[in-house]
Design a protein around this nucleic acid. Structure first.
Lengths: 163, 163
DNA sequence: CCCGGGGAATTGACGCGTCAATCAGCAGGT
DNA sequence: ACCTGCTGATTGACGCGTCAATTCCCCGGG
């Protein structure tokens, strides 16, 4: 029996129809939102969100360069993902990879002038998009709630980081 | 602080640092969440979220079959995306495509027994995952807030659906 | 000197998404 | 009949992600 103890139906049973509805709504909406933001970024500047993340990190890095493993850790990507992405970005001239003197087998990622330029051009419209599609959609309360939500979800997620 | 112009600083300026922080938190967290849910689904049942969405729609469809355009509309996918995905699913024997008698050039997507079976096996652990990673992470208030948020964002997003 | 590890990074295969073409039938108009 | 155009669906090219090898180099033992 599925005890209807007031305190705890959580943790044992399946989600209710209402909870499920919220889940689907939530997922579909955030997916739509991020894909719209990404599409605008692409239109405005020919950069993907991934490009933007990399360029942002490099722009803020001392000397606009970074070891690729440090970069991966910084933006929370898997190494191989970054490697593939850097390959594509290098072809487009946004970054450059150089052998690193200090570390054996260490690659250093440099921001090129054209990469810096692309980032500089992109950032203003991108921030505006975030405001238009996210911030402006929400009341101050809802915005706070979004922050809370993210915190709660992340906290719940973080611990059990692998089985 | 952000100018408290009575009228509403919305729509003109860039997001504040705080708003931006919330945005990043929100996006990163939801991305982590959905990718974890997808990974679990994959582990438990060898289905991707896309597979699941398609199988769910077909399972609920009268006669477990559906015109592919209707299917695309139902789950909100682009036609070509669905086409690619159905190709992959057909190779795995989850669905079957047949020429549709009534409509010229119309393809009808059928759920195969093995597709139905896979869905049946997948759904219970998947719902449990949703409860564990999403519902259980939130208080009832936060859950409601998530629904509100989705509603507000979707509403703001929906109108200008494309130019 | 050779050999087994181990860390840093890359590579390849493959699934997944998007965009832009393309194709097959079925209008209508002239 | 012959273009024009429409809708439904597929295809190809390419970017993106993940997982499982693989490479390179260095280090510590034997």
């Amino acid at each position: 029996m599925t005890s209807a103890t007031p305190e705890r139906r959580r943790g044992r049973q399946l989600p209710t129809a209402e909870e499920l509805r919220i889940w689907r709504d939530f997922v579909e909406t955030t997916e739509a939102l991020t894909s719209r933001v990404a599409a605008r970024l692409q239109l405005d500047s020919s950069l993907s969100s991934g490009d933007y993340a990399v360029l942002l990190a490099l722009t803020e890095a001392p000397d606009q360069r970074m070891r690729s493993s440090a970069l991966a850790a910084h933006i929370g990507w898997e190494r191989s993902r970054l490697s593939h992405h850097l390959g594509r970005m290098e072809r487009r001239g946004l970054i450059r990879r150089e052998e690193c003197a200090t570390v054996p087998r260490g690659a250093e990622v440099h921001l090129t002038p054209s990469g810096a330029e692309a980032f500089a051009q992109a950032t203003f419209p991108h921030l505006r998009t975030i405001r238009e599609l996210f911030v402006d959609a929400l009341t101050p309360d809802q915005l706070r709630a979004a922050g809370d939500l993210a915190g709660a979800l992340r906290e719940h997620l973080g611990p059990r980081h692998e089985e």
